Simulated assay, not measured.
Amino acid sequence: MKTKKYLFLINGMVMGGAERVMATIANEFVKRGNEVCIVTLKEPKSAYRLDPRIKIVGAKGCVQSNNKVLRLIQLIYSGIKGFFYYLYYLKTYRPDAVLSFLTYSNLLAIMTRRIFVKNVPVVVSERCDPQKRGYVLKKLCEFMYPMADCLVCQSKQVGSYFKRISRKSNIRIIPNPVNPECIAPTLLNKRRNAIISVGRLSPQKNFDLLIKSFHEIICDYPDYIVEIYGQGPEYNNLNKKIRTLNLENNVFLMGTKKNVMQSVNNARLFVITSNYEGFPNVLIEAMASGLPVISTDFPTGAARELIKDGINGYVVPRNNKKELARAMAQILSNPQLQDSMSEANKKIVRCFDLNKIIDQWNAVLNKEY
């Protein structure tokens, strides 16, 4: 069988859900005898382990200034630099197909495909909530995404959104895989009394809601703790909230860790409080570890697709402190429910088996659909 060459395009390989999935796909593709080159618009570094056979190169674009005018200039310069850098590698590497993740990289890949290199199939993947963009960027994506050879979405609801707009059949749904390296299920009787959440400390993740909801039930569960893994601009505000509610001995901001699920899979409960998400990796990894899960009902619909109320967890309204507190109490107060939810989650995540998901990506990149 002829070795296939694939060029992967992404803004940067920093820590993040999209970046981790791209690293996983790249690693699995080279294991299957393919060649992969990752082109980033930023530094050619990866926060995630890459097989040494994978080539990673970067345009070293940089947008750092807090000044709006300087930031705009840096953004334009980085965009132009990234465009020519990607075009150079597209022509010299001569891939059989291109896979792009994240909005700006997707638009760049489609534009280049339409104007300069028309014989290379381009697959783009939407990794977030498409309705959370500004008006201009939202309309640009709606106009250009149908020009890709295939658009991959992570949830059925996001796929339906683009199908209504484009009315084309080149849309496929591929959820994120469960990475076996991140999973080490723990027996329930060996779990510690901890509630876990993971994500960037940003307004999007809304960890403030988790802290306030836990405060509602702490009198009934004084031996429980909350651990929040991640870093970000909301660190000081969250610390202040913890002190204001006198939760210093029960709520902890843990910072970042690689393969964080290996550190937290012995907890009792996993909670996501986001205002919006794409398809959160940490949620399916928590499920695969056998943790009961609670998630807010963010607009992409991924939580509803993954969680069946009362079976493997609960989905609660966004920004509803009372409902989140009630759901946490229902799980923490019932060991039998924890046990049944744990077993249900271990079965559900078989749908996200790594090899099955890689087969789907392979089919899309080779137009086997």
Rank of each mutant, 00 (worst) to 15 (best):
M341R: 00
N11I: 10
G230N: 10
V198I: 15
I110F: 05
P52A: 08
E181W: 03
G33I: 11
D297H: 02
N362S: 15
M287K: 03
I225P: 01
K258H: 12
E142Y: 12
R53Y: 04
N320G: 00
G290T: 00
I311N: 02
V178L: 04
I217R: 05
N193Q: 13
E368K: 13
L209A: 00
P130V: 07
K55L: 14
R127T: 05
E35M: 11
G159R: 07
R53C: 12
V315H: 02
L269N: 04
S46Q: 08
N250G: 00
V315Q: 04
F214N: 05
F8W: 04
N27M: 06
L253G: 08
Y93R: 03
R133N: 15
G230Y: 09
M13Q: 11
L187P: 02
I110D: 07
V39P: 06
A329P: 01
C128I: 14
L102T: 12
C150G: 03
N67P: 02
R167L: 09
T103R: 12
K367A: 14
V124K: 01
I358N: 03
S340W: 00
L245V: 04
L245F: 03
C62I: 14
M22S: 09
E227V: 01
K91F: 13
K91W: 12
K190D: 10
S274K: 13
A26W: 02
C219R: 15
F270N: 06
L7H: 05
P180I: 04
C153D: 11
R49A: 14
L238Q: 11
C153S: 04
A288Y: 01
A109N: 09
C351G: 15
D51A: 10
G79C: 06
Q157W: 08
D223W: 02
D129K: 01
R350H: 15
K257E: 15
R20T: 11
L9F: 13
V98I: 13
P233E: 15
L9T: 08
V316K: 03
N319M: 11
P44S: 07
K258S: 13
A26H: 10
I242C: 05
S78M: 08
K45E: 11
K156V: 11
K240L: 13
L187C: 03
D149M: 03
I225Q: 13
L188G: 00
M254A: 10
F214Y: 12
F270M: 05
I242L: 08
I115E: 10
A329K: 08
N250K: 13
I196L: 07
A59E: 10
V178K: 05
F83R: 11
